[in-house]
């Protein structure tokens, strides 16, 4: 029983992890080696260097531009999400105003509402506002993060005793002072958590930037990756008819691009895992 359980776990480990191993080995091989060698064979470091160089310099510095765009959209969206969500969560949890419950209910509904259903009307709206093709057409939607509001609400309502705030008010603190000097310092974990979720959601979003951007100089990495598929020989026969003098991308180059595209999120995953998990659970199960 115990043994069988372990075997099942190992089987799933293979399922989850083998593609990752494959991905990191792929850029060390040439296109020919990729299909003819064992999937787990290591090519060579010099091939890796060539692959890296080829993809980073492909079409000028497209990949770096996409990386920069992804960073602008994601960090902008994340900053806005945090700035909006933390005070809103605080307000919902620890202040009273007319419509508070209604707002909370709407938040829950919108949180469950699949955002992609709104991409088309959002596109038309952004166009009417004159924001289409600007970074705001992405930063604003990324910054609207009801899930973060809900997390913050739960955090504030379960970790900060109301008596503490009441005492501060009696001592003459203003509402802003109470928030700024009592709530915010206590809210560090939830700020990190909301920031992380908002960042990952923005970084990985495909459909919205796919619609909202003018051309490849505005693409974030996720959309850029799809374009790279069209530039990769095996995935687009037209590339075979290209002249012999130009650089044609191959599958290992594409794998390298994927690694670069996921690196930021992966690094957060690797180094902040413990904090994240703890944070996730504090937000979640605080008694």
């Amino acid at each position: 029983m115990r043994f069988g359980g372990l075997a099942i776990l190992l089987l799933f480990t293979a399922f989850f992890f083998v593609p990752m191993i494959w991905l990191f080995l792929a850029p060390t091989k040439t296109d020919g080696q990729l299909v003819s060698d064992s999937p787990f064979a290591f090519g060579s470091l010099s091939t890796l260097a060539h692959t890296f160089h080829r993809i980073v310099t492909y079409d000028g510095d497209s990949l770096l531009i996409w990386l920069k765009n992804s960073a602008i959209y994601s960090f902008g969206g994340t900053a806005l999400a945090v700035i909006a969500a933390i005070p809103a969560g605080y307000g919902l949890a620890l202040t009273q105003f007319i419509g508070r419950r209604l707002l909370l209910s709407i938040t829950l509904i919108v949180m469950i509402m699949p955002a992609t259903a709104l991409v088309l009307p959002l596109f038309l709206e952004m166009n009417k506002l004159g924001l289409y093709g600007t970074i705001w057409s992405l930063i604003l939607p990324f910054g609207f993060f009801p899930f973060g509001v809900y997390l913050a609400y739960i955090y504030f309502s379960s970790t900060i005793p109301k008596d503490l705030l009441a005492a501060a008010r009696i001592d003459g603190a203003t509402e802003w002072g109470v928030f700024r000097y009592i709530a915010v310092p206590l809210a560090r974990p939830i700020i990190g958590l909301v920031g992380f979720f908002a960042f990952v959601a923005s970084w990985n979003n495909f459909f919205l930037p796919f619609v909202m951007t003018y051309d490849n100089s505005q693409y974030p990495l996720q959309v850029g990756l799809q374009q790279l598929i069209g530039s990769t020989a095996s995935f687009n026969p037209a590339n075979y008819s290209a002249g012999t003098s130009i650089v044609v991308l191959h599958r290992p180059d594409l794998a390298m691009a994927v690694i670069i595209a996921i690196a930021p999120v992966l690094i957060v995953f690797l180094f902040a895992q413990r904090t994240l998990v703890t944070g996730m659970l504090t937000g979640a199960t605080k008694e």
């Binding site: 806005l80 700035i83 909006a84 969500a85 005070p87 809103a88 605080y90 307000g91 919902l92 202040t95 009273q96 105003f97 508070r100 707002l103 709407i106 938040t107 919108v110 509402m113 709104l118 959002l122 709206e125 604003l140 939607p141 910054g143 609207f144 009801p146 509001v149 509402e175 802003w176 928030f179």
Partner: peptide
């Protein structure tokens, strides 16, 4: 004070939700 804290979020909610 409550309105103040939720204002930005409510704006985004209206505009984008």
């Amino acid at each position: 004070a409550g309105y103040f804290f939720v204002a930005l979020y409510v704006l985004l909610l209206l505009l984008l939700g």
